[in-house]
Amino acid sequence: MDNPLVRKLQRFARLSSEDRQALNEAARLNVRRIGSREDIIREGESPDQVNLILSGWACRYKQLEDGRRQIIAFFLPGDLCDTHVFVMREMDHSIGTLSAVTVAEINRDALTAITELHPRITQALWWEMLVATAVQREWTVNIGQRTATERLGHLFCELFLRMRAVDLTDGNSCELPVTQVDLADALGLSNVHVNRVLQELRANGLLTLRGRQLTIPDLAALKAASLFNPNYLHLDHVGRHLDANED
């Protein structure tokens, strides 16, 4: 069975069986299990491999000296935690788990060999990086311009669609192993404000949260309420069009 990175990259390029095999093999070489609420790598440390999330959720974050934290990105299954992070001498941010995760550590030589031997994987990784940058832009807009209700609804739409892109949704539901504090740290809101907005979204029938499960009864309605346009996620297989006539 293909790992979630393969399922994700196939949205950006038409991968051959050899491409998929190379990615699957790389993801099986150095796998480790990390518990919930632990750091995968800390700010100031020297990175020497790319971390691929195979299962579970993690985040990129910055922490101020007084303990305040800003979550800058959520990493879901299939996400690479910075494709070329090993070019940095030291980390300028930390990556921590939000739930127990399984991580494949792909070293520099293995990744370089894959990109040299498999041009379509290279193309797909470029698309993946461009989408990651687009997500960061959208998060900036979210914090800078959207209301609290729009911010939270927008984030839920994004996370649901990203999970669906790697076949990890069940109908209109998906896993959501984050706390209200995590949501507050990602959206620039207080925990109390997040709680109030969640109650409002529930009362309006736009979502339900039970344990670690998010359900969106009417995705179109939540998109409309959140001013959500999924174009920045490029889920329409734009990258695949580039080589549609090859083979």
Rank of each mutant, 00 (worst) to 15 (best):
T169A: 09
E116I: 02
H193K: 15
H154C: 06
H154E: 02
G153T: 06
L176D: 04
L76I: 11
S17V: 11
F86M: 11
L9N: 06
H237A: 14
L130I: 08
D247G: 14
S99I: 04
I41M: 13
R89E: 15
I216C: 00
L23P: 04
E138Q: 14
N142R: 13
H84C: 08
V178L: 15
L168F: 04
I72A: 13
D82A: 14
V87C: 08
I72K: 14
D48I: 07
N30Y: 10
W126Y: 12
L5A: 05
V192L: 09
R240E: 10
S46P: 04
R7S: 13
V131N: 02
T122L: 13
G78P: 09
R69Q: 14
F74N: 00
R7I: 09
I71N: 08
R28D: 11
A134G: 12
N195A: 13
S99N: 04
A73Q: 14
R11E: 06
A224D: 12
L54C: 05
R89G: 08
L111C: 03
S99H: 03
L130E: 13
A225N: 08
V178R: 06
A22P: 09
I41Y: 08
V50C: 09
D19W: 05
A165E: 10
L23S: 06
K8N: 06
D92F: 11
P77A: 07
T149L: 12
L201H: 07
R108F: 08
G96L: 06
Q63G: 04
N142K: 05
R37N: 12
I72Q: 14
A134C: 05
E43I: 10
T102V: 12
N191M: 10
A104H: 07
L130S: 11
E43C: 10
K62Q: 11
A124Q: 07
L233R: 03
L9C: 04
L183G: 01
S16Q: 03
N231C: 06
S226W: 03
E38I: 01
D82C: 11
W126A: 12
L206A: 01
E90P: 00
L222N: 06
E43P: 02
V85Y: 02
F12E: 02
S94E: 05
I71R: 01
A73N: 11
V166S: 05
I216V: 12
E65R: 15
M91W: 03
M163A: 11
Q180T: 09
